[in-house]
Every structure is written in structure tokens, then in C-alpha cells.
């Protein structure tokens, strides 16, 4: 592990320096910009502030009367409580995002396969799909809330819709680009339609599908945080609003860093998965 990190730094020390200077610039700004006169919180929180006051303050969001004191009921702020609160809300969000992505991917790809099989439907769907893709997703959160309530279900369906449209369009394109020769070769070996679907179409569209996963991961993180931010009363996106309510930039920053870390981890996970699944690619 350490070895891998050292090797990466050796190869990309300029990149590391670039990120470090971003952190340094932030820290300098934190010491130059005054504390907000209104709330008494720093406008740009320093690292010390974030890791100290802000992080331990996250324990305010621990509401269960076990494992750690509950500050809301007069208990002390503890690091254990902060970690528990962060984990609790992170897990909720991770559940929502994965459920949403799975739902969106399965519905999107199934639809694409169906549409690709019926040329008339595909032609009919082109216009509406273009319009739906152009409708700004994040502006539709309030609508989803009215339709499905401020619940887990609503967030999951919202994420699924956001990524599903992308998967649908990507899969349709990928199928249209699928080299005809493979289908013919399979047909000449006596393949049935189901066999062609399973052994030719699905593996052949996987490369394009994987590039769509990167796009949709970004969308999914935006969508899940946005849906939580505006709607339901739990999840890591909601924590931003609780902190924003007191303009507590330190806590907001803590949550931001967590989201960033999760997003990076999911990207890395997909990259590993891709390297394995697409190991046949030239």
C-alpha cells in the first residue's frame, strides 16, 4: 500500500504539488478572511477549525440514545458521536445512490434493448428522449417530491430517473454502433435471438456502457445530494443543509470532503471493475 502510494507520487509529484497548493491556498485564505460577524463562524474555515470544532460538532447530528452521548439531550460532543453520525448518514446515502443506480441502469438498458428491437418505437422515442434529456434534472426534484413524497423511495426514483435516461441513450447509441458483422457471424453459427442478445449485444455494448457509468456516477452523486438537500430529512446531503442553516462553513466543508472521498472511491471502484470486465478490450 505505502509502496503503491510512493510510486504514484514519484510518477505524479507535480499533480500532488498542485493539490497541496490548493490546500495551502485555502489555508492562507482562511487566515486572511475575517470571521463572519453574523454567526461568529469563519467564512473560510481553516484546517484546524475543520478537524477540531467542526468535526466534533458533527456529533450534534447523532440522535440515538446509545453508543455515544446525544448532544441534543444535553450530552457532550464526542468524536465517537461525530463518527457515528457521519457513518449513519453516509450509509443511508450510499444505499440510496446504489439502489438508484441499479434501478436506473436496469430499467434504462432493458428499455434500450426493447426500443432497439422495434425500429418504429425507436424512431418514435427519439424526440421525447431528446426533450427529457434536455429538461434540467435538478429542477425536477420538487416535482419528484410531490409525486413520491419526501421518502427514500422518492430519492431512489429520482436518482434512477437521472441516470436511467443517460443509460437508455447510451445503450441505444451503442447498439446502433454495434458492428453488424458480429450479428451476422453469430447468425451463421445458428444463434437464436436470445443467444445473440446474451453473447453478442450485451458484451459488445459494455465498453460504451462503462464510459456512461462515469458520467452517471457524477449525475448520481449530484442527484442524491440534491434530493436530500431539498427533500428528505436524512443522508449526507441533508447534513449540508443543517450546517448551512447556521452558515457553519466548517461543518459544510467536512461533509463536502466526505462526499468528495466517497465519489473518488466509487470512481476508483468502477475503474477496477472496468479493468476486469473489459480485460478483453484491445
Amino acid at each position: 500500500m505505502m509502496h503503491a502510494v510512493r510510486r504514484m507520487l514519484a510518477r505524479n509529484w507535480i499533480g500532488a504539488l498542485s493539490v497541496l497548493s490548493l490546500v495551502a491556498a485555502w489555508e492562507i485564505a482562511a487566515h486572511l478572511v475575517p470571521v463572519s460577524p453574523l454567526q461568529g463562524t469563519p467564512i473560510v474555515p481553516s484546517l484546524e477549525h475543520m478537524l477540531g470544532v467542526s468535526f466534533i460538532g458533527m456529533s450534534d447530528y447523532w440522535k440515538f440514545p446509545f453508543w455515544a452521548p446525544v448532544p441534543e439531550l444535553g450530552g457532550a460532543q464526542t468524536y465517537r458521536g461525530a463518527i457515528l453520525a457521519m457513518s449513519y448518514h453516509s450509509l443511508i446515502t450510499l444505499y440510496r445512490i446504489s439502489a438508484g443506480m441499479l434501478l436506473g441502469a436496469s430499467v434504462g438498458v432493458t428499455r434500450a434493448l426493447l426500443l432497439a428491437h422495434f425500429p418504429l418505437f425507436r424512431a418514435l422515442a427519439a424526440g421525447p428522449l431528446h426533450f427529457l434529456r434536455m429538461c434540467p434534472l435538478l429542477a425536477m426534484i420538487p416535482l419528484f417530491q410531490f409525486w413520491f413524497g419526501a421518502t427514500d423511495k422518492s430519492v431512489i426514483i429520482f436518482v434512477a430517473y437521472g441516470v436511467g435516461v443517460v443509460y437508455l441513450v447510451t445503450a441505444l447509441n451503442a447498439i446502433a454502433n454495434l458492428p453488424h458483422k458480429y450479428i451476422e457471424a453469430a447468425l451463421c453459427q445458428g444463434a437464436s435471438r436470445l443467444r445473440i442478445l446474451r453473447s453478442i449485444v450485451i458484451p459488445a455494448i459494455l465498453p460504451e456502457f462503462f464510459s456512461a457509468i462515469y458520467v452517471t456516477l457524477g449525475i448520481a452523486w449530484s442527484a442524491v445530494v440534491a434530493a436530500e438537500y431539498i427533500g428528505v430529512d436524512s443522508g449526507i446531503g441533508r447534513m449540508v443543509i443543517w450546517a448551512d442553516y447556521f452558515s457553519d462553513t466548517g461543518r459544510m466543508m467536512i461533509v463536502t470532503l466526505f462526499i468528495l472521498a466517497y465519489a473518488m472511491l466509487t470512481f476508483a471502484f468502477v475503474r477496477i471493475l472496468q479493468r476486469y470486465v473489459l480485460r478483453w478490450m484491445p
Binding site: Y182, A185, I200, W280
Partner: peptide
Amino acid sequence: FQEDTVFPW
């Protein structure tokens, strides 16, 4: 076929 139709996957 003339083209390469060996399935790469």
C-alpha cells in the same frame, strides 16, 4: 467473413 468476426470478448 472477410472482416475479422472473431468475437473480441
